[in-house]
């Protein structure tokens, strides 16, 4: 903890600096897209949160595997501390996606494969957090949540695949032209800066939350000691 404590102000400063740079680049420097106009600027907050929502779940699944196999308690704490950040990022990705969808597709919500699996990912995050909250003993809660995270990580690709399958069979031609390959330099740079900023943001908040969780557990064990007299 001492080491991460020394890092923290730096991490927070880097987050702030990257965010400022990314916002400046994205909102002021980057030109409007010739097709999407100014709405393309939503991308600079949409893509990083969408990326983080998946990256964080991957981290949680990895940490859960470490927690289950090597029983390393920090892995447990890292997974727990990640979940609210991941859920928040998924909510942000969904909300910004909807706000992008309305001007682009003419509707806030389409049952597009990506949106739908994002929504399901959000539910999985909520379930994970609810499971942690429902079991009092942190050790048991941690193991149960780790099992759930692993089950979720096995299922997520299947869910995504099935939703894509479903989508191609059900959806008319109304859906988005994927921006993936057509994004050009001036749009790409602010996006990558923002992705970097969001990633550092995640680690900063993660360390805060892990720190808090460790303290909370120490409080818990001290109180248990007191109760035992």
């Amino acid at each position: 903890m001492r080491v991460s404590g020394a890092f923290l102000p730096w991490l927070a400063a880097i987050t702030a600096a990257l965010l400022a740079w990314g916002l400046y680049d994205g909102l002021l420097v980057a030109p409007p897209d010739y097709q999407q106009g100014e709405t393309v600027r939503i991308m600079y907050v949409h893509v990083p949160s969408a990326y983080l929502s998946m990256m964080i779940f991957g981290t949680m699944a990895f940490a859960s595997a470490v927690a289950l196999i090597w029983r390393h308690p920090v892995a447990d704490i890292a997974a727990k501390a990640s979940a609210p950040i991941g859920a928040g990022m998924t909510a942000a990705a969904l909300a910004t996606g909807m706000l992008w969808g309305q001007p682009m597709w003419g509707t806030f919500w389409v049952w597009d494969a990506r949106l739908t699996s994002m929504l399901l990912l959000f539910f999985i995050y909520l379930g994970y957090m609810a499971l942690w909250a429902a079991i009092d003993d942190p050790e048991r809660a941690g193991k149960a949540a780790a099992i759930l995270a692993l089950v979720g990580s096995v299922n997520l690709p299947i869910i995504h695949f099935s939703v894509e399958w479903w989508n191609t069979l059900h959806q008319g031609p109304s859906v988005l032209v994927s921006g993936g390959s057509t994004i050009e330099g001036p749009f790409l740079r602010p996006m990558f800066i923002m992705i970097g900023a969001y990633t550092v943001f995640y680690f900063t908040v993660l360390i805060w939350r892990m720190h808090q969780e460790i303290i909370a557990r120490r409080i818990r064990s001290l109180r248990l000691l007191q109760a035992q007299g």
Partner: peptide, 11 residues
């Protein structure tokens, strides 16, 4: 419990 102790020294 081992968790709080180990966690503090390792993190």
């Amino acid at each position: 419990t081992a968790n709080s102790e180990e966690a503090t020294s390792d993190a």
